[in-house]
Design a protein around this nucleic acid. Structure first.
Length: 606
RNA sequence: GGAGCCGUGGUGUAACCAGGUUAACAUGCCGGCCUGUCAAGCCGGAGAGUGCGGGUUCAAAUCCCGUCGGCUCCGCCA
């Protein structure tokens, strides 16, 4: 390397006029005028225009003519002001240009398979296969920078607040409950497997017993479940745990972290503290445990009126212990019959009998079910629903939870149709979750969060009497209707932990076998503690306003959990399998033998 | 495990529903001209047989079946 860079392309401005600079980067575009060539040189800062003038650079002008997009080079030259009519205001460095006096071409490039530009509309297949080129695009570079800055913010914020960054094992043991584990076979212990962590949950609790008091880790987690647009099988958490804390302390810590993140990375000011609502209130008002509160259209109850009406469907629902609830799709009174029918089939596909609707008009109600209600009851409904002429009222009658869940989905769906969701950053906490739910099929209780989540002290007695009513000290942080963090205060007393295990049907032997090490640790003076994990990728996705989590992960997996860049997962040699004491079942061997070996696997870094 | 959408020169699309010329257009690529462009311009050229396999038909990018890959959703997963 003869030429050594002195600055980045986009840093240059008219302040640098007449300076001699050395730049290095990739050829973005070429405008060849014969004896005058313009080249936009790109590095991670942006672009600057290079000028090759036949008069001034005759010694290597023919070399410049051979440059092609994505060639890598360094140039030295002088920064000159452009004449006013040639200034390009669209580019940061558009007021100046660099007249090239020397050039060193480091490498040529194949013609890239897609444009190295923002906003390309290319098959994601290709982008993933050539991810290193995709990442060269400015918007992806910004993503990488934003990810880096967010990590630095997390580290400095948590460091400032007394948290220690401590690593926990990636090779650990499989634990019951939760997601499917990724397994890693042990070579030295035949027939045994490590599991990759779904989260460092048990280790961070052990660290509290160790007297660390405040721990954090920016850590990779693994869950072998099917993917979604906002879900990858390996993802990053900002994980933290603290001793001698209330849930308020944990929530304050996260609020402060989110605040600095927005402040330092996005240069945005967000309002603290975040609103807090209980799970029950979230369900009653929004029909979900992760409400999107960027718009209203809250769920209202008309069960009492329904019970008095002549509308049998609703009356019977309430008589049988169900509820009738609805929402006001304000301004949707002009929906066509077809649109209403579509909404009806939609809610039916979600699993309820149907959808009742009423359109409020100046003259009264337009609705197939209006005739079953007295004018007094209709007026009561209008009042309860805050219906104004032009509004569409939608009602579902079913059992409590189902009614709310369906109206919650409907609320989101209608809000999207009506385009009433404001673009803003809206956070809220959901607390007081039910500690356990009941699985009808397996006829047993299971933890909503995890088995170490502490119940509310006031609800301890409910554990035996009415477990489903017991609330937990768990908390979720919701950002624009998407869960971005979740945590809880943990149980640190053995008797309560035993009660929970009993409730979940985990026997002493099982408990001892699965996480005896934690229970033993707790016998040596476990402090009260709690923590939370922030879904880092998902948070970044929302902060960046992207619809896909893949857009904020440098090397993501496809919907089937494969990596198109490396070809992982791939088959391994018979010898490798033998060392691991693994044999494939015959069917799979037959399939594998038909396959080609993936070409890079021989020289892959390890 | 289930459902839907997509797959055509390097890239993005058209033709597909209602099978019938040499698979069209833009861009990119190659060559030529050109000293003020910045999506440079002008002229010329090359480049695909339609993801793969099978079927129907005189004839398949087009219809049918299967399969592979990508995306989205449900189940699953905090």
């Amino acid at each position: 390397m003869r030429l050594k860079r002195t600055c980045y392309c986009a840093e240059l401005s008219k302040k640098n006029t007449q300076e001699k600079v050395v730049l290095a980067g990739w050829v973005e575009s070429i405008r060849d005028h014969g004896s005058l060539i313009f080249i936009d040189l790109r590095d991670r800062s942006g672009i600057v225009q290079l000028v090759f003038d036949y008069q001034r650079s005759s010694s290597f002008f023919n070399q410049a003519e051979k440059l092609r997009p994505e060639y890598v080079l360094a140039v030295s030259g002088e920064v000159l002001m452009r004449s006013p009519e040639t200034v390009n205001p669209a580019v940061n460095s558009g007021e100046i240009e660099v007249v090239v006096e020397d050039m060193e071409v480091f490498n040529a490039s194949e013609v890239p398979p897609f444009y190295i530009q923002d906003g390309i509309n290319t098959d994601e297949n290709l982008r993933l296969r050539y991810r290193y080129l995709d990442l060269r695009r400015p918007e992806m570079q910004h993503m990488l920078e934003m990810r880096h800055k967010s990590m630095m913010t997390a580290r400095s914020y948590l460091d400032k607040h007394g948290f220690w960054e401590i690593e926990t094992p990636v090779l650990t043991r499989s634990t019951p409950e939760g997601a499917r584990d990724y397994l890693v076979p042990s070579r030295t212990v035949s027939g045994s497997f490590f599991a990759l962590p779904q989260s460092p949950q048990l280790f961070k609790q052990l660290l509290m017993v160790s007297g660390v008091e405040k721990y954090f880790q920016i850590t990779r987690c693994f869950r072998d479940e099917d993917l979604r647009a906002d879900r990858q099988p390996e993802f990053t958490q900002v994980d933290l745990e603290m001793s001698f804390c209330s849930r308020k302390d944990v929530m304050k810590t996260v609020e402060g972290f989110i605040y600095s993140l927005f402040n330092e990375v996005l240069k945005k000011e967000i309002e603290l503290p975040f609103p807090v609502i209980s799970y029950t209130e979230a369900m009653e008002r929004f029909g979900t445990d992760r409400p999107d509160n960027r718009f209203g259209m809250e769920i209202k109850d008309i069960s009492k009126i329904a019970l008095q009406s002549e509308f049998k469907v609703f009356r019977n629902v309430v008589k049988n212990g169900g509820v009738v609830k609805g929402l006001n799709a304000s301004g949707a009174g002009n929906f066509s019959r077809k649109e209403l029918d579509d909404l009806t089939s939609l809610v039916q596909s979600w699993g309820t009998g149907g959808l009742a609707w009423m359109i409020v008009t100046e003259e009264g109600f337009k609705s197939p079910i209006a005739k079953f209600f007295t004018s007094g009851h209709l007026e009561e409904i209008r009042k309860e629903m805050e219906g104004e002429p032009g509004d569409l009222l939608l009602f579902v009658g079913d059992e409590w939870e189902n009614t709310l869940i369906i109206l919650g989905k409907l609320r989101l769906h209608v809000a999207q149709l009506l385009e009433i969701i404001e673009e803003k950053d809206s956070f809220l906490w959901v607390i007081d979750f039910p500690l356990v739910s009941f699985d009808k099929e397996e006829s047993r209780y299971y933890s909503n969060h995890h088995p170490f989540t502490a119940p509310l002290e006031s609800d301890l007695s409910l554990l035996e009497q009415d477990p489903l009513k017991a609330r937990s000290l768990a908390y979720d942080l919701v950002y624009n209707g998407i869960e971005v963090a979740g945590g809880s205060i943990r149980i640190h007393k053995r008797d309560i932990q035993e009660k929970i295990f009993a409730l979940l049907g985990i026997t002493d032997e099982e408990a001892q076998e699965k996480f005896g090490f934690l229970l033993t640790a707790f016998q040596y003076g476990a402090p009260p503690h709690g923590g939370i994990a922030v879904g880092f990728d998902r948070l970044l996705m929302l902060m960046a306003g992207r619809a896909s989590i893949r857009d904020v992960i440098p090397f993501p997996k496809t919907a089937t959990g494969t990596c198109l860049l490396t070809g992982a997962p791939a088959s391994v040699s018979r010898e490798q399998l033998e060392e691991l004491h693994i044999s494939l079942v015959q069917k799979e061997i037959n399939e594998k033998e038909g396959e080609e070996q993936f070409p890079v696997s021989d020289n892959a870094e390890s």
